[in-house]
């Protein structure tokens, strides 16, 4: 018998062992739901799969009686637009600040204290200010995501830019490169896969700020819907929505990982030198 630390399961076993805990959680939920529903068919806390699928059918496949919209899809579109805009703008700002502060000592000296202070401000505490300044519309929600995520991306990219081997910068200079060329041909391409990594890591935070902003002031969106139907204890809507958000987050993460491997193969194959 090998030591446990040396025992790594083969592929089919790994798959099976990974699925068991998930199946167990599902089975526990179904058993609990069944038990509560036999005791009280009107129980709302642990809806059965049928109840959830009929709720989803109502939200996704039938037009709303009040507005005629397919709520599930308008919520999804509204949330994804806010998240996409917020993360996209944060990525651009983060890239600019991170790259410039990392590459140019003069910019670093000027911006670093501001960046440090800014990244320590809890973004949710700024939400009231954002609502006051930018109104309750889309802008304040997007700005919240930007403020919440951009400092993290900027600091992460700054760190990676500073960690770039000095040898490469010296080499570029001996080949006659000016500062612009070093920025665009040496540093930027090598920082791009790091940007994708940083965006992947910050998507979770992005969702957090999105749902928080939607919960407080919105008229559509996944977060808005969850907090709206909470008033009626509509677990049959909340649980599928949460599952859907999780799936979306998973797909976004996968897509970014694929994009990074596709665009920057040299980054993923252990480019050590």
């Amino acid at each position: 018998m090998k030591r446990l630390v040396n025992l790594s399961p083969s592929r089919p076993w790994a798959l099976l062992l990974g699925l068991i805990p998930l199946a167990l959680v599902l089975a526990l939920y179904l058993a609990g739901s069944d038990a509560r529903l036999t005791e009280n068919p009107n129980d709302k806390l642990l809806p059965s799969l049928e109840q959830m699928s009929s709720a989803l059918d109502r939200m996704a496949l039938q037009p709303s009686k009040r507005s005629g919209e397919y709520l599930f899809w308008t919520d999804t579109a509204a949330s994804l637009q806010r998240l996409g805009l917020g993360i996209g703008i944060a990525a651009i700002i983060g890239l600019l600040i991170g790259l410039l502060t990392g590459a140019l000592p003069a910019v670093n000296v000027a911006l670093s204290p501001l960046l440090t202070v800014f990244s320590l401000v809890p973004p949710l505490a700024l939400l009231p200010i954002l609502f006051i300044v930018f109104g309750l519309d889309e802008l304040s929600k997007v700005v919240l995501i930007v403020i919440g995520v951009a400092p993290f991306i900027a600091r992460d990219l700054q760190k990676h830019t500073l960690e770039m081997p000095r040898e490469q910068l010296v080499k570029a200079q001996t080949l006659g490169a000016n500062s612009m060329q070093i920025l665009f041909r040496v540093l930027l391409p090598q920082i791009m896969p790091r940007l994708i990594d940083a965006v992947r890591l910050s998507l979770g935070t992005g969702w957090l700020f999105l749902i928080a902003a939607e919960a407080i002031a919105a008229t559509d969106g996944l977060g808005y819907r969850i907090f709206l139907v909470r008033r009626y204890l509509s677990m049959d809507v909340i649980i599928p929505y949460v599952a859907w958000i999780t799936l979306l987050a998973f797909l976004l993460d996968m897509a970014l990982a694929w994009l990074s491997r596709r665009l920057y193969p040299w980054h993923h194959k252990g480019a050590a030198s």
């Binding site: 081997p165 040898e167 490469q168 080499k171 570029a172 040496v186 391409p189 090598q190 920057y264 040299w266 980054h267 480019a271 050590a272 030198s273």
Partner: peptide, 8 residues
């Protein structure tokens, strides 16, 4: 000795 070429 190392890091002399551009990995990208």
């Amino acid at each position: 000795q190392q890091y002399s070429v551009f990995p990208h």
